Simulated assay, not measured.
Amino acid sequence: MQYDQPVDVLTNVDYILFDNKYERVLRQLGDQVQLRAATVADGVRKLV
Rank of each mutant, 00 (worst) to 15 (best):
L47C: 05
Q28G: 08
L47F: 05
D8K: 15
L26F: 02
N20Y: 10
R27Q: 12
Q32N: 10
D4E: 14
F18D: 01
F18I: 06
T39S: 15
D31V: 12
D14I: 14
Q2T: 06
A41N: 14
L26R: 03
D19S: 08
R27T: 04
Q32W: 09
D19V: 05
Y22W: 14
K21C: 01
Y22H: 15
A38K: 08
L26T: 05
K21N: 00
D14H: 03
I16F: 03
V9F: 11
R36K: 14
D4Y: 09
T11S: 01
Q2S: 12
T39V: 15
V9E: 12
T39N: 14
P6S: 04
Q5S: 01
L47I: 04
V44F: 04
Q32V: 12
P6D: 10
V13Y: 14
N12Q: 14
D42V: 11
Q32L: 06
R36D: 05
L29P: 00
G30L: 00
A38G: 13
E23H: 07
Q5I: 08
K46M: 12
L47N: 05
A41Y: 11
D14A: 11
K21I: 02
R36S: 10
A38N: 08
V33T: 01
D14Q: 13
L26Y: 06
V40L: 07
D8A: 08
L47W: 07
P6R: 03
L47A: 00
L29I: 09
Y22Q: 02
G30T: 01
N12K: 05
K46S: 06
D42I: 13
K46Q: 09
G43A: 12
D31Q: 13
V40I: 14
Q34Y: 13
R36V: 08
A37L: 04
D14T: 14
K21T: 01
K46P: 03
L29W: 06
Q28H: 09
L17V: 06
G43R: 09
Y3F: 14
Y22E: 05
V44Y: 07
R27W: 04
V33A: 00
Q32Y: 06
N20V: 12
Q34I: 13
D4H: 09
E23V: 00
R45M: 03
Q34L: 12
V7G: 01
P6V: 04
A41W: 08
Y3A: 02
E23T: 10
V7K: 02
V7R: 03
P6Q: 07
V7W: 01
V40T: 08
Y3R: 13
Y22F: 10
D4T: 09
V9I: 12
A38E: 15
D8P: 05
R27A: 04
